[in-house]
């Protein structure tokens, strides 16, 4: 036999799934939200998204070059981080602040810990919190929905969470309220979430448990569950941030514990802390606990139990 054969250890087949395809699916799932952002807050949202995506990709490229590692921008994870960060910002933020956020997300949180899969907190969320603490005024000034149609002056108004009951459910569902560009339109977020579940990119466990526990918790503290779920960043967090592979548990029961923890913390922070919003902090806190949750929820291997229940 003249020609050389590949020799390798089995298996010799692999599924079609790839990191790039998964990230592309997340980007596709975020498209409805991005379009909604452009409709609700004008074309400036598009500029903001563009700035964030471009600077995240550039940061990743430069960071990998400096660290003398392979370029990883091809896996599109930097695009996802940039997109998520942009969707977590108010539309009239100074683009330089956004760029600073991107540097924090990619360089400090992601690449310094070893790149994709190694970061212990969600890069976009960590960057958002750094910005929130560093530039509280810029980060908390939200223009009204469709402000660009009313005139040059961006009118700031109370968010649904700082003034509970000020918006109707249908306004919240469609996104006719102030807030970060990606968090207002619940309809678009749910659409994206359904796409991710159908494509089997995420399991519905985390979003469903997160939202369910948050609703229960709201009842416990005496609030309006539906209003709490539809307002603020809860849906964006539950569908796109808490389901981040790297920073959520890989075990099934771990996912439930993680999501339940996020739900409880979110409502507690919203109700009792000084800030109107608690999604980012609660997910970040649970991110840190992931290794411990996984240790506690390691599944019992087949054959560990001598006699299975229901044996016949």
């Amino acid at each position: 036999m003249e020609n050389k054969l590949y020799v390798s250890s089995s298996p010799h087949l692999s599924s079609n799934a790839s990191t790039r395809r998964i990230m592309l699916d997340v980007i596709i799932a975020l498209l409805p939200t991005s379009v909604a952002a452009c409709i609700i807050f004008g074309m400036r949202s598009l500029v903001l998204i563009g700035v964030c995506v471009a600077s995240c990709v550039l940061c990743e490229y430069i960071a990998r070059k400096i660290m003398k590692r392979d370029t990883t921008i091809g896996d599109l994870s930097a695009v996802v981080t940039g997109l998520l960060l942009a969707l977590n910002l108010p539309v009239n933020i100074n683009p330089l602040i956004a760029v600073f956020g991107c540097i924090v997300a990619i360089v400090a949180v992601k690449q310094l810990f070893g790149g994709i899969g190694m970061n212990f907190v969600n890069p976009a969320l960590a960057a958002r919190i750094v910005l929130l603490v560093s530039f509280p005024n810029d980060m908390m000034t939200y223009p009204k929905a469709f402000f660009y149609k009313e005139g040059v002056d961006a009118l700031t108004s109370a968010t649904p969470l700082s003034d509970i009951g000020s918006y109707s459910y249908i306004e919240l569902f469609l996104g006719k309220c102030p807030g970060c560009i990606g968090e207002v339109c619940a309809a678009a977020l749910i659409l994206g979430g359904i796409y991710l579940v159908i494509r089997k990119v995420i399991s519905p466990v985390i979003p469903v448990v997160y939202v369910g526990v948050a609703a229960l918790m709201t009842l416990v503290v005496g609030g309006d569950p539906l209003y709490q779920i539809l307002s603020g960043g809860l849906l964006l967090g539950a569908i796109f941030m808490a389901t981040d592979y790297t920073t959520s548990p890989i075990t099934f029961s771990g996912k439930i514990i993680f999501a339940a923890g996020c739900g409880i913390l979110t409502i507690l922070l919203r109700t009792y802390s000084n800030m109107p919003e608690g999604v980012s902090f609660s997910i970040l806190l649970m991110n840190v606990l992931v290794p411990h949750i996984e240790n506690l929820t390691t599944p019992k291997s087949l054959g560990t139990v001598k006699k299975a229940k229901g044996e016949k």
């Binding site: 799934a17 990191t19 998964i22 990883t72 896996d75 994870s77 070893g114 790149g115 994709i116 899969g117 190694m118 592979y245 790297t246 890989i250 075990t251 599944p299």
Partner: peptide, 10 residues
């Protein structure tokens, strides 16, 4: 490439 901890193997 790097593991993204998607949990598909689990």
């Amino acid at each position: 490439s790097a593991c993204i901890r998607c949990g598909r193997c689990v």
